[in-house]
Design a protein around this nucleic acid. Structure first.
Lengths: 175, 175
DNA sequence: CTGGCATGGTTGACTAATCGACTAGGCGAT
DNA sequence: ATCGCCTAGTCGATTAGTCAACCATGCCAG
């Protein structure tokens, strides 16, 4: 599964708890992946079972203990293997395009409404991504790791922009 | 589930067998959704259980019988309800961006290789989509249903083009 | 002093999706 | 004659993902 790899990737940057991981999935990683917290904890347990990560309990004052997970050597090898493996075709899944595809029975006004709603959503997401991008320092110009992370965000932005342009053009010519 | 809706949408265009549906998913619908055949058959059975579709067996010469599924009135209402329902945020899932995000440990040449491979894939997909688009008649200018179906393909095309531009820009500035 | 929020984690039930094998007849090509 | 492909559909096993509840503690605001 891909989630196991993403978690390994994050653990490779720093040891983390499931809670930390969830926060990453909800922020820095959320423009290309989403993960449910139950699934994160279960995948983490599986990584430990498979020897790709280890846990140690770190007590804290005033807070619950942290179950800190660290990537192992085997885990690093797994990660490398994934990064170097051949690209499979990733299955497309665009629920919104699906709606549009089947919207032929709707009134013209309803279709316009649908497209407008989507546009508002996309615009909001664009603003969010652009704000995140602005927060990125200038390390991303020299350091390859930072550059690639920033690049994925840029990919998300271009992606959303393309969608907005498509929405506008689709509205304009709608018969 | 979304698949049930997509199947209803297709059945709304014409009565079909699971086999027919699978072919649609592998051709006209493949730019926004993919479905496994086992899942199609199971979902079809579920639609019948729920009264959203009916089956009748149509014998054929030289070929196995067709289990032809037709949408019911209740099915049409379901479909309409879906089309009119509020847009949820659809969870992003971009395995390729995920790889790039974690590719910081790779050599520069390896990263370039990864991006080039993806570019070749995207280019191939673009050619495929453009060929499909060229096959669409001119009905799509006047008829709303045809227009919207063509629009989703156009969306796919813009999407892939944006990805190619992103890949080029990412390669160009890679430190 | 109470309620909400953050930390940190677990469980059960369920739905969705994938993979591979299996059945079975007909067709055309080698 | 046999091999592979097309039509058409079914089944079992497994993985992935979602939803909602539940546990416990501590902090701060009202």
């Amino acid at each position: 599964m891909i989630l196991a790899r993403l978690i390994l990737g994050l653990l490779n940057l720093a040891p983390m708890t499931g809670y930390d991981l969830k926060k990453h999935f909800d922020s820095s990683v959320n423009h290309f992946w989403h993960a449910d917290k139950a699934q994160i904890y279960r995948t983490l347990a599986q990584l430990v079972r498979d020897g790709l990560a280890t846990v140690r309990t770190v007590p804290q004052e005033h807070y619950p203990d942290r179950q800190e997970h660290q990537i192992t050597e085997a885990g690093r090898r797994e990660l490398e293997a994934w990064l170097g493996s051949p690209l499979g075709p990733d299955p497309v899944r665009e629920p919104f395009l699906a709606r549009v595809f089947f919207a032929g029975d709707m009134e013209r006004a309803e279709v316009l409404d649908l497209l407008d709603h989507r546009r508002a959503q996309a615009q909001a997401q664009l603003a969010e991504f652009e704000a995140m991008h602005a927060d990125l320092g200038d390390a991303a110009v020299r350091d390859r790791r930072a550059y690639l992370m920033a690049a994925t965000l840029d990919g998300g932005i271009r992606h959303v922009r393309a969608e907005i342009e498509w929405l506008d053009s689709t509205k304009e010519n709608l018969p």
